[in-house]
């Protein structure tokens, strides 16, 4: 965004920078992201409030709908990835499938960010029930895992299974987050507001 090079980086001289390093460094950065979120959520005293988005009846409702939208885009992610990898019988990948995959992913991520900020700022990392503990842990882990996915995405020469595995991990964590929050919210308080 700022000082990032906009031209292809010439291959570094030490091409021996092995596949392992290409995974380990992004993983460490991702772990750091998750840890930072968790520590912030634990240390920052929850305020109970944050900037609100108009048009919804309550912050819980806003977050549940945003999270649901993000999860729907995440399902598109898995579907488009399967098509791209030729895993859907008798479906040839159309030319726009890559664009669909990229943009659904970006939208899912950008929808998830406000939800996470509200969680961290207003509610914090909490442990008072299994649902809440699991949700807190996975919420932090999701952004770590997504960071890993984004960082290894442009890397060349990785084993073919790496991206699908990391992508599946990101998807699984997001769906688990959705079940421990939005699904809980809708089933507890109802969908219609």
């Amino acid at each position: 965004m700022t000082a990032e090079p906009t031209r292809p980086i010439p291959l570094p001289p030490q091409r021996a920078a092995s596949g392992a390093t290409k995974i380990v460094v992004p993983s460490l950065i991702g772990a750091l992201v998750a840890l930072t979120l968790g520590i912030y959520g634990r240390l920052h005293h929850p305020t109970g409030i944050a900037v609100n988005i108009a048009g919804f009846s309550s912050p819980g409702s806003v977050k549940s709908w945003l999270a649901t939208a993000a999860t729907v885009f995440a399902v598109v992610q898995v579907g488009s990835a399967l098509v791209m990898y030729g895993k859907v019988p008798r479906v040839a990948a159309p030319s726009w499938i890559g664009g669909l995959h990229r943009w659904s992913g970006r939208l899912a991520f950008l929808l998830a960010v406000p939800v996470a900020i509200h969680c961290l700022y207003a509610l914090g990392f909490q442990t008072y029930s299994t649902r809440v503990l699991v949700h807190s842990l996975l919420g932090c882990a999701f952004f770590g895992a997504f960071t890993v996915k984004m960082l290894i995405l442009p890397k060349r020469g990785l084993p073919g299974w790496v991206l699908p595995v990391v992508g599946a991990l990101v998807f699984t964590v997001l769906v688990a987050i959705w079940f421990t929050s939005a699904f809980w919210f809708f089933s507890t308080f109802g969908i219609k507001r």
């Binding site: 090079p5 980086i9 944050a50 970006r106 950008l110 960010v113 700022y121 960082l151 995405l153 442009p154």
Partner: peptide, 19 residues
Amino acid sequence: RNTPLLTLLTGGALGIALL
């Protein structure tokens, strides 16, 4: 090559702005 990083940074910036 850089679009995933751009996505990350955009999300990060959005998060910081909301915070």
